[in-house]
Computed example of a mutant assay.
Amino acid sequence: MSAGDGLRAHVVVPREHFAVDVSLQVGAGETVAVMGPSGAGKSTLLQTLAGLEPLRAGEIAVEGRVVDRVARPRVRSEPMHRGVVLLGQKPRLFPHLSARENVAFGPRSVGAEIRAARSGADEWLARVGLPGSGERMPHELSGGEQQRVAVARALAASPRVVLLDEPLVALDPETAGDIRRMLRDQLVSTTTVAVTHDAADAVALADRLIVVEGGRVTQEGPVREVLAAPASGFIASVAGLNRLVGVASGGGWRSGEVLLTSDDPASRALATTDGVALAAVFRPGDVRLAEEGAESWPAVVTRIEPTLVGARVHTDAGAVDLSLAAAGGLAVGDRIRLRVHPTLVRFVAML
């Protein structure tokens, strides 16, 4: 990315127990998802980019223009002058203004003629799936409709960068899916940073994924690649994968009594040096119950979680998805044996 494109930032903000220290570059028209555990610093990152949280060190540039810098010469642009808009979990519409006037607010605040601003607002309402809704007041709209108006209001202001702070988290799954698709269509040419806890949001909206844990970037890359090869337990959980920590041993992976091999060439390459720390990654749905044998390992049931099609049985050595019939005779504390085929296992280097 050239210096004049998109968003370039190094954000340093102290927190109570750690400092958020994150660098990111987002190309013009690119969407980058940010994921991490609660309290990792994701919202602090967005608040700082938007100018709502003071930058303590580093620099923020939007389309090549520095909008915040701590080093001399000091730069501090006010939030409304950054070309950045932040859309959060709550729509925060002006309750006394109609949907049309809410959307027209941004253009009018920078000098647009009233008639043009209102006409543009109606166009944006149609683009987000609310044609003919201009006269409706916020209290007459559902939660999903209010969020659509909030998206229209944000984009009608012609921002250079859009920041999304989990705008779908309070919506029901069907509504969230509809708005996710709408966002994907409307943000296709907009530089966007999207904080989310939902892997579906990251896959649907983003080109790249950045993982922030304890205020630091722990993994980044194309969304599907990061989710398929999680470098931390958090991302493994988000992706719905088992991630067992061990070491390379004899060209495979070992942790105590558990010995796994992989048919993946990249994984085998990581396992060539005995003792190197590795994580073994595989889907609970690919695990099978097994009898005593070299290709299986012992495990103790720690939790049984109902799923839509059966149960996920968690153990001290990975989880396995079972049918209701197969899981029906199991209880916490039971000893079982598990196995997974080498074609379904990947090894990942430890952080």
Rank of each mutant, 00 (worst) to 15 (best):
P131F: 09
G132M: 14
S133W: 15
R136A: 15
M137H: 13
M137W: 01
M137A: 15
E140R: 15
S142E: 07
S142F: 06
Q146G: 13
A150I: 06
A152Q: 02
R153A: 08
L155S: 03
L155H: 07
A157Q: 08
S158I: 05
S158V: 10
S158T: 13
P159F: 10
P159L: 08
V162P: 02
L163K: 03
L164C: 04
D165Y: 08
L168A: 05
A170L: 12
A170Y: 06
L171K: 02
D172R: 03
D172E: 12
P173F: 09
P173R: 11
E174T: 15
E174G: 10
T175E: 12
A176R: 08
A176Y: 09
G177E: 14
I179N: 00
M182C: 14
Q186R: 14
Q186H: 06
T190H: 13
T190S: 14
T192L: 10
V193M: 08
V195D: 07
D198M: 07
D198Y: 07
D198R: 14
A200W: 04
D201A: 08
D201P: 03
A202C: 07
V203Y: 02
A204C: 09
L205G: 01
L205S: 02
A206I: 08
A206S: 07
A206Y: 02
V212H: 03
E213W: 00
G214L: 12
G214W: 07
G215K: 00
G215D: 12
G215T: 12
Q219H: 14
Q219E: 13
V223E: 05
L227C: 06
L227D: 07
A229G: 10
A229I: 06
P230V: 11
P230Y: 01
S232A: 10
I235K: 01
S237T: 15
V238E: 09
V238Y: 02
V238S: 11
N242S: 10
V245Y: 11
V247N: 00
G251R: 01
G251E: 01
G252K: 00
V258N: 00
V258D: 00
T261G: 15
T261H: 14
